[in-house]
Every structure is written in structure tokens, then in C-alpha cells.
């Protein structure tokens, strides 16, 4: 399969008065053409920073991509000029933001905001832009597009606004769509509609999607592959099957156990105790050590290497080391 995006060893830091925050610390992942990759993790783990880094939308200063490469269709975006980035943003890579209530400019009509990107990048006539905008509104399922074009954001509901945000992101027919928590601010029935819209659009246009979320329900619905992020690192990647049925990293296991499930009624939810480490001075070893029920001495000292479990499933955990496996087998044996 053709790789549309390849991120290698990405580091992003933010300089503040209190010190340097290492928000993203060596992230590797790739995205194939036409697939949906979900980046999952709790608040503050660096998922949004990663997505903003791909768009080069990290405010500099204080933020900075301090190392690594972001290869989009072979060219490295970390080295691209601001002018070149402007010609990529909205055209090749588009972004959808979390809160549709604030993502639209309250003083401009929906039509203006829809057509703006198109008119900026493709030299089209006003009439052609209007036609395309109407088409997009139709695609994302907004009734009476002709009248709605002339209205302002405050005249739309949250779900409708998110549809408009999606239409704006897709109007230049990008190859990559980054959706940063696109359903978090919506209520559940609307969430399902928006997710179905994503699936429909992907079938229709073949766009590749990076979905940033902390909602495993959303992931289960539309992701092909999943990358689990913790404290600025990707700790486990795999297909939806790998992650949901064979989670190997204790953090991934903990994450799945803390989701309410209907088929396990009566059982208590198991939250992960403790809090993520301070990213001003992240630990040398595995950042999950302090909260991990299986933590060993080595975990605190050295960051585990990438263990390749199958072609798709990779994990960074000392438990995958052959010595740890032997130890676990012995203790299990002695107990029996």
C-alpha cells in the first residue's frame, strides 16, 4: 500500500517561563492511502500537538518542531517554507477542529467561509465556487443549502456547524484529513451521524483520515489502525483487532478496562490510578512506570525498544522482552 504520510522521530517542545515542555518526544507512525488512523490517548498526551505539527500550525514561539521528519507524499514538511505550507494547508491536508461552536467566524456568512479556501487556492469564478459550495453542503447533509449559504454560524445547531466545518475542510478535495476530536463537543446522537458522514465521505472521495480522539467508542466505529499515545510517545500501534482484542501494553489494557461496557454489567470500572508524568522533566525510562501494575526496575531506567509482534502490531514495553517473559512464566509456575 502507498504511504501518504510518514512521521519519523518527531519532537515538539514548548518554551515557557517555567522551563521547556517536551510535548511530543519521538513519535513514529505512518498512514496509508485511503485508511483511517486513530491516535488515542488521554488529555495532554500530545495527540493534538502532533496533528498541529503536521499542519505546521504550532505557534512559534513558544512551540517548535525540534527534531524529526514529517514526510507527506515524499516531501518533508518540517523543512517546507511558510509559503509552501500555505499552498498545502486546505488543499492537500485539511483539518477539522474539536469545537464547531468556536471554529466558525461569527461575523461572516457560511457561504463566504465555505468558498474562501476554494477561491484562495484555485482560481475559480464566483459562480463556480458557489456551485461547488452548494455541492459540498449537499454532501455533508445540510438541507436548503441555497438559503443556508447566506446565514451566519449562530443560526446553526452544533451538529450542523460541524457538518459545515467538515464541508469547509473538504471543499478543495484534500488527500489527508486531520480530525482533532471531531465529535467530542457533540451529543451522542449527533456523534453517530458525524461518524457515518466520515465513512461516507471516505468511500466517496478516498481521503485518508487521521482521527485524534480519547473516545474508544469512536475509534471502534471508524478506525482501521490505532496508535496509542502516552506522555508524548506512541506506545502501541496495531489494527483495530490487535488493539481491541490483544492489547499488549499495560496502558492500552488499562484504557480498555476503563471504558463502560454493556456486556459486563455489574462489574466495576477499573480506572488507571495516578496521573501522567510531568512533561517538563519526563522520566528517562517508560513514562507509564509509576502507574503500571507490572513495573520492573528496568522500566524506570531505560525506555523499552519497539517489539514487533506482527506486521501490523508493535509495542514499546519491557514485558515483551524475552527475559521478562521467562520471569513471568517462572513466577506463574511457582505460584501454581
Amino acid at each position: 500500500m502507498e504511504k501518504i504520510l510518514e512521521v519519523n522521530n518527531l519532537h515538539v517542545t514548548f518554551t515557557t517561563y517555567g522551563g521547556t515542555v517536551k510535548a511530543v518526544r519521538g513519535v513514529d507512525f505512518h498512514l496509508n492511502k485511503g485508511e483511517t488512523l486513530a491516535i488515542v490517548g488521554e488529555s495532554g498526551c500530545g495527540k493534538s500537538v502532533t496533528s498541529n505539527a503536521i499542519m505546521r500550525l504550532i505557534p512559534d514561539p513558544p512551540g517548535k518542531i525540534s527534531a524529526g521528519t514529517i514526510k507527506f507524499k515524499g516531501s518533508d514538511l518540517t523543512k517546507a517554507s511558510e509559503k509552501r505550507m500555505r499552498s498545502i494547508r486546505g488543499v492537500d491536508i485539511s483539518m477539522i477542529f474539536q469545537d464547531p461552536m468556536t471554529a466558525l467566524n461569527p461575523t461572516l456568512t457560511i457561504g463566504t467561509q465555505l468558498m474562501e479556501g476554494l477561491r484562495q487556492h484555485h482560481k475559480v469564478t464566483g459562480e463556480a465556487a458557489r456551485k461547488k459550495a452548494l455541492e459540498m453542503m449537499d454532501l455533508v447533509g445540510i438541507p436548503n443549502p441555497k438559503e443556508r449559504m447566506k446565514q451566519y454560524p449562530h443560526q446553526f445547531s452544533g451538529g450542523m456547524r460541524q457538518r459545515i466545518v467538515i464541508a469547509i475542510a473538504l471543499i478543495c478535495e484534500p488527500e489527508l484529513l486531520i480530525a482533532d476530536e471531531p465529535t467530542t463537543a457533540l451529543d451522542v446522537t449527533i456523534q453517530a451521524q458525524i461518524l457515518e458522514l466520515f465513512e461516507r465521505i471516505q468511500r466517496a472521495t478516498g481521503v485518508s483520515i487521521i482521527l485524534i480522539t480519547h473516545d474508544l467508542g469512536v475509534v471502534a466505529k471508524i478506525a482501521d489502525r490505532i496508535a496509542v499515545m502516552y506522555a508524548g510517545k506512541i506506545i502501541e500501534t496495531g489494527t483495530k483487532r490487535d488493539i481491541f482484542y490483544n492489547p499488549e501494553h499495560p496502558y492500552t489494557q488499562g484504557l480498555l478496562k476503563s471504558v463502560p461496557r454493556l456486556d459486563l454489567q455489574g462489574e466495576k470500572l477499573t480506572p488507571i490510578d495516578g496521573t501522567p508524568p510531568d512533561l517538563f522533566s519526563p522520566p528517562k525510562g517508560c513514562p507509564f512506570t509509576a502507574r503500571c501494575p507490572f513495573a520492573m526496575e528496568v522500566c524506570d531506567k531505560v525506555y523499552p525498544a519497539n517489539s514487533i509482534l506482527s506486521e501490523s502490531h508493535k509495542v514499546n514495553c519491557w514485558l515483551q522482552d524475552s527475559r521478562a517473559k521467562k520471569l513471568l512464566a517462572e513466577t506463574a509456575g511457582s505460584k501454581a
Binding site: 500555505r86 488543499v91 477542529f97 466558525l104 469547509i168
Partner: peptide, 12 residues
């Protein structure tokens, strides 16, 4: 957010 969105559209 709408300023960030405008940047994400590739506006100058």
C-alpha cells in the same frame, strides 16, 4: 479557533 481554522485553510 476560527483564526486557527483560517490558517488551516491556507489563507495569507
Amino acid at each position: 479557533d476560527y483564526i486557527k481554522m483560517a490558517r488551516a485553510k491556507g489563507l495569507s
